[in-house]
Design a protein around this nucleic acid. Structure first.
Length: 883
RNA sequence: GGGCGGUUAGCUCAGUGGUUAGAGCGCCUGCUUCACACGCAGGAAGUCAGAGGUUCAAAUCCUCUACCGCCCACCA
């Protein structure tokens, strides 16, 4: 017996195993690929987590799926790069730090830009360490020597280069457009950063007096306060009701202004009154109408969305207070026609939930059409495959209707826009800060104060991390990357932008596959959020169940692109599986140490050895196919089922007979080899327990080769198909064992009683099954004889169990003493009948039922039911005996 | 308004044309069997949301309906 059994505790203890192996892998440098130009690399760029706090389960899922792919390809011998990093997360991070400041009673404005940025960097440095450590706990095998941060010099240089190139091509412009303004963040937002929520509000009908006092035209609005910035009323040119009014003017109530009535096709005749108030400064539609009719743009809001001096009488009021005040003023003027309830979508800031306001503003935009076109083509042509496929439609639909992208943010945290202004009016876009104005040679240049949308820099991530725009060795070798794996909720924010930027900058799509996973929700199916307080901390989960269990729980039973829930039971299942493997290995190691790791020619092996090798081979094949299709949940299930349901439940159990009776050949080489191979198969999913056990097997069985399972070969299915002959024999064997066990249970045969069974089977199987007589006895406590097909009647007082290839005949007398059993049945039947009679009488007694507490009556009723069930079972049992 | 997804055992979910639909957990019965009670053996449990259609064959493909969820969308 080997010492290793004593070394290994009875239960798997992850905390004693995990840190050791992660350190070992790091120290060996296994995470850093060796560039080998004769081989095609496998490359995954990690979606950089926002430096906004701790990792959550979504990050754990991302990390786990990517680690599975990366470990798998590394074991296949491909030079494998998984590049980690973090995102400065512009507005999201700034909001987090601003909240921290608010607790100190400070605002960023009070600190000033420089001091605030210092605070941001302090935050970043803490947060990066934290994120790195949490990732390491998860077992991620990413190349930390290549870790990047979006604000690092390299990626920042890439951002400025991209900006300047687009500017020079005319694909970045500055102009006044309607943007989404968040008054709390005091910045513009892109359309994607606005979340629309259905809101029950009202539609207010205002009467605007015609300039010649001949009457009114009524308009309907959901935002009454914007009327202060109205510069026209629009009607549809085909609308008979208003045809005569086109070209005339109305007196805008509450102001001194005369505004025209214009005709525009954009007006829907059936909505409201068919007449629309036009506020070019505060509505995208109206802005367009304003352009077509050369209307003035009157912005009525300050940056904090209080009313500015344009709204005389309301100046300084908050927009919502102003809404009520305007309605009141209109009513007092006798111009309020009616108010109707009305549901409509209101935009909110994605980061701080404040209601956004559409405002015409001077901002920087990307002219996106020319970038979208090749990005659409890349997916349509199949150069990029999106998994699951249904997201291709979602992607194409968005890309084909894409609108220009507002990229300037009035924040202090991010990549500063690389544009400088000179007093002479010159505008200079440059990668490096210019010293003088090229036009007037002035040295006083002022950089644009704004920063870029954080997604502008993350869009470059697959190539900016590899050194672009320089022609680095990494860029040459690792680009384009293999798989972009991320959650489906950032398909537009990130994936689409990476495809556009990647093609624009490098001429190649940045990755071959996009694999989108779902969101992890809580046990009730709700999205986890800090405000809801239902966030599960991956670290706490790993402490309790182990990393492998967490990885198992979030991968198994899930399917690409679908949301899943994390439950304690699944975590327990993962922990139990790790423990099962641990104990299977303990069993094998108990007999190890004899240097018998090599398996003889398969053809000469006993049938159950051939069977388990064949089943392993099939499992390897199935898992391989599934993994190529990104079906990791299903692949893991197959591996799990093989290890637990076939290797442990049957092969180890069969091997026990051979090991105890010392028969030859020993099953040990096969036991060890199948386990060793299975551990390699499972390693990408559960890296820690597999490494620990693999190392033990390696030592005990003198397995040569590499120093870690993570750089061992990934199992690949052998060319030969399944060993059908062996499978047929073992299938028969297991069916026989199950039938006998089932019979014992059904007839309630005492556990320690040895029964008799005659197995009749086709002639060919007899010699093949005969060697298993001892094993069957061990597995069923039945002494068996194995014969050819039955050619006489089934003996009296015997059971005949008919199976696919065989029949098992069990004499009743071997299961129990028939006479004694009948006597027992009769006695118990009498007892049960007596009890039923007694209880029926009791429950039939109105006095009892009426006066006794309900719980007592229920209890007696339950007792009656139990007794009746017992009687029925006894009757059935007796009937069987009589047959 | 447009689009997508879901509806399978008590619960959470796998399973996309082929013999009696699976897993984990839960439930019932029996086991301290010398790897494992984080376990072993046995068992009960599903008209695969509903209706119609295609097919030799449908949980799986098509059509419609219902309910739940998500995404996109400038009708004030």
């Amino acid at each position: 017996m080997s010492d290793s059994l004593h070394e290994l505790p009875k239960a798997y203890e992850p905390r004693h195993v995990e840190p050791k192996w992660y350190d070992y892998w790091m120290q060996k440098g296994y995470f850093t690929p060796k560039i080998d130009k004769s081989k095609k690399p496998f490359v995954v760029i990690q979606p950089p987590p926002n430096i906004t706090g701790d990792l959550h389960l979504g990050h754990a899922l991302t990390a786990t799926i990517e680690d599975i792919m990366v470990r798998w390809h590394r074991m296949l011998g491909e030079p494998t790069l998984w590049l980690p990093g973090e995102d400065h997360a512009g507005i999201a991070a700034q909001v987090v730090v601003e909240r921290a400041l608010a607790k100190e009673g400070l605002t960023r404005q009070q600190l000033g830009r420089e001091k605030f940025t210092e605070r941001m960097w302090q935050w970043v440095n803490n947060c990066r360490d934290n994120i790195g450590n949490q990732h390491k706990r998860l077992g991620v095998s990413c190349d930390w020597t290549r870790e990047r941060f979006t604000l690092d010099p390299g990626p920042s240089h890439a951002v400025r280069t991209f900006f300047v190139r687009l500017y020079e091509k005319g694909l970045i412009y500055r102009g006044e457009r309607i943007i989404n303004w968040c008054p709390r963040c005091a910045t513009a937002l892109s359309d994607l950063e606005v979340e629309h929520k259905e809101n029950l509000s009202h539609l207010w009908y205002f009467k605007y007096p015609l300039a010649d006092d001949s009457g009114f035209i009524t308009v309907a609005t959901t935002r009454p306060e914007t009327m202060l910035g109205d510069t026209a009323v629009a009607v549809n040119p085909a609308d008979e009701r208003y045809k005569a009014l086109i070209g005339s003017h109305v007196k805008l109530p509450l102001t001194e202004r005369l505004i025209p009535i214009v005709a525009d096709d954009a007006v829907a005749m059936e909505f409201g009154t068919g007449a629309v108030k036009v506020t070019p400064a505060h509505d995208p539609n109206d802005f367009e109408i304003g352009l077509r009719h050369k209307l003035p743009v009157i912005n009525i809001l300050n940056n904090d969305c209080t009313i500015n001096e344009q709204g005389s009488g309301f100046t300084g009021m908050d927009r919502f207070a102003a809404r009520n005040a305007v309605v009141e003023a209109i009513e007092q003027a006798g111009l309020l026609e009616k108010i109707e309830p009305h549901a409509h979508a209101v935009g909110h800031c994605q980061r701080c939930r404040t209601v956004i306001e559409p405002i015409a503003s001077q901002q920087w935009f990307v002219k996106i059409g020319p970038l979208a076109k090749p990005a659409i083509e890349a997916v349509k042509s199949g150069a990029i495959t999106i998994i699951p496929e249904r997201f291709e439609k979602v992607y194409l639909n968005w890309m084909e209707n894409i609108r220009d992208w507002c990229i300037s943010r009035q924040l202090w945290w991010g990549h500063r826009i690389p544009v400088w202004y000179c007093g002479c009016g010159e505008l200079i876009a440059a990668v490096e800060e210019p010293e003088t104005c090229p036009k007037c040679s002035a040295t006083e240049l002022r950089q644009d104060p704004d920063v870029l949308d954080t997604w502008f820099s993350s869009g470059l991530w697959p190539h900016s991390t590899l050194g672009w725009p320089d022609k680095t060795e990494d860029m040459e070798y690792f680009y384009p990357t293999s798989v972009m794996e991320t959650a489906y909720d950032i398909l537009f924010f990130w994936v689409a932008r990476m495809i556009m930027a990647g093609i624009e900058n490098t001429g190649q799509p940045p990755f071959r596959y996009v694999y989108l996973h779902g969101l992890i929700r809580d046990e009730k199916g709700d999205k986890m959020s800090k405000t809801a307080g239902n966030v599960i901390d991956p670290l706490a989960v790993m402490d309790k169940y182990g990393t492998d269990a967490l990885r198992f729980a979030i991968i198994s039973g899930t399917t690409p692109g679908s949301d899943s829930k994390l439950s304690a039971t699944r975590l327990e299942a993962g922990r139990n599986f790790a423990n099962k493997l641990w104990n299977a290995a303990r069993f094998v190691l108990r007999y190890g140490g004899s240097g018998t790791g090599t398996v003889a020619e398969t053809a000469h092996l006993p049938i159950e050895d051939r069977w388990i090798v064949s089943r392993l081979n099939s499992t390897i094949g199935e898992a391989g196919v599934l993994m190529k299709q990104f079906e990791f949940g299903e692949a893991l299930r197959r591996i799990h089922d093989f290890l637990w349901g076939e290797y442990c439940d049957w092969y180890i159990e069969l091997a026990k007979t051979r090991l105890t009776d010392g028969s030859s050949p020993s099953p040990l080489p096969v036991l060890a080899q199948v386990l060793e191979t299975s551990l390699r198969l499972l390693h990408p999913y559960m890296p820690f327990v597999t490494e620990e056990l693999w190392q033990n097997l390696k030592r005990a069985f003198a397995i040569g080769g590499v120093d870690s399972i993570m750089v061992a070969d990934y199992p690949e299915a052998s060319g030969s198909g399944p060993d059908e002959a062996a499978v047929r024999v073992i299938d028969s064997l297991t069916a026989i064992v199950r039938a006998i066990r089932n019979t014992r249970a059904e007839y309630e045969v005492a556990a320690d009683k040895t029964i008799h069974a005659v197995i009749h089977t086709t002639g060919g199987l007899v010699p093949l099954l005969k060697p298993y007589a001892g094993a069957i006895e061990n597995l069923t406590r039945a002494r068996v004889t194995i014969e050819g097909e039955r050619n006489s009647e089934v003996p009296e007082k015997a059971l005949a169990l008919v199976l696919e290839n065989s029949e098992v005949v069990i004499p009743m007398a071997s299961m129990f003493d028939l006479a004694a059993e009948l006597e027992r049945i009769n006695k118990e039947t009498a007892e049960a009948s007596a009890e039923i009679e007694r209880l029926e009488k009791l429950l039939g007694d109105d006095a009892f039922c009426g006066k006794a507490p309900a719980t007592v009556v229920e209890k007696q009723q339950e007792k009656l039911n139990t007794a009746r069930d017992r009687l029925a079972r006894l009757a059935e049992h007796r009937k069987r005996l009589a047959e």
